[in-house]
Simulated assay, not measured.
Amino acid sequence: MVQALDRHAFEARLQAIGQARYHDKHPFHRRLHGGECTMTEVRAWVINRFYYQSRIPMKDAAFMSRCSDPDLRRAWRSRIEDHDGGVEEGGGIRRWLKLAEAVGLDPDYVASARGVLPTTRFAVDAYVSFVREKPMLEAVASSLTELFAPKIHSERIAGLLAHYKFADETALSYFRQRLSEAPQDVAFGLNFVLDHADTLEKQDAAAAALTFKTDVLWSQLDALFSAYVAPGRIPPGGWDGREGVTGDLDDSTPTQDVVA
């Protein structure tokens, strides 16, 4: 019988998945962070990424509905609070809508989820279903893309501030906040997976769950790139580049305002 990896080796296996498959390596993110995106591309990203952000607390609520252990529920519920926030402050979802305003979009339009690409909707809904239906270990393991998020948030903050006129501390507050919130979530989720994946079969399942989540994130960027960057066709239901726009529609040049 093949033995399970020890704790350190299994963590290294999980880290290797992120190093190979995390979406910071996608051409769309490199284009965005390098100041090469047009306003249409930036706005399309904001619209589609909001759908993912808005479903995170729904995913976490589905997870908590399955938890019989109150300690696990207490630890997990901060994730919902981080995204939904309070009545006044609004959390990560409201901060994302501040970004939508900054890039010249009507936040009500963005929140409506009209214009979300079919692939984005399919991938995100599949993630929510995965967490609702899979064993608890796999549901938690799918959240471990958070291990790799601080790096992409830091790169995004630096890249957007350097290259785009709309970028300021209010617009980028979502990413700033996640730099302090994510480490706590990562520590709990990683320890849970390392503690409970005590057989090779469970380790394989947890690794597959993390791989699935990287596919969810990567596929969203593939859809954006195909619809708005590469000469192609915006699929039915996708944002047309005009609806909900409150800023300048002139999109003939990239948005960068490079600081010398």
Rank of each mutant, 00 (worst) to 15 (best):
Y174V: 06
A197H: 10
R7P: 00
V258H: 08
I234F: 01
A141P: 01
I17V: 02
G104I: 11
D106A: 11
H23Y: 06
D24T: 12
R132L: 07
Y51R: 09
R242H: 08
V128L: 01
A102H: 13
A207T: 02
G238Q: 12
A182F: 03
N48G: 08
D108V: 06
G237L: 07
G115M: 12
R66L: 08
A187N: 00
G247P: 00
P70Q: 09
V186I: 07
R178S: 08
H29K: 14
T120Q: 07
P70S: 12
D251T: 14
R74G: 00
L224F: 08
E41W: 00
F10L: 05
W45K: 06
K59A: 15
L179G: 00
A260K: 11
W239A: 04
A100K: 01
S129E: 08
R156Y: 14
A260L: 15
V116L: 09
I157E: 07
F130D: 06
A141M: 04
Y51E: 02
H29M: 13
D168A: 13
H33N: 15
T40F: 05
N48S: 09
E41K: 05
S129K: 13
G34A: 08
A75T: 00
G18F: 00
R49L: 04
R74N: 06
R132A: 12
V124R: 10
D82T: 11
V229M: 12
A227N: 09
Q3P: 00
A206L: 06
A207D: 02
A16K: 00
L161A: 15
W45S: 08
A111Q: 06
V258L: 14
G104V: 07
Y228Q: 15
L14D: 04
Q53P: 01
F166Q: 05
R55P: 00
R94Y: 14
L97S: 06
V103D: 07
E81T: 01
Q3N: 11
Y52N: 09
S68A: 13
P27V: 09
M64I: 14
I47A: 06
L249I: 07
H29S: 14
Q3I: 14
S226E: 15
L161G: 11
R55Y: 02
D82G: 01
D222K: 01
P183M: 11
L190T: 12
E146I: 01
Y22N: 05
E155P: 03
V87Q: 10
G115S: 09
H153S: 10
G189Y: 02
G34F: 01
L249P: 01
G237V: 07
E181Y: 10
Q256N: 15
P236K: 11
H8S: 13
F166C: 11
K134T: 00
L224Q: 09
V186W: 01
V216N: 04
G237N: 12
E181N: 14
D185C: 01
L5R: 06
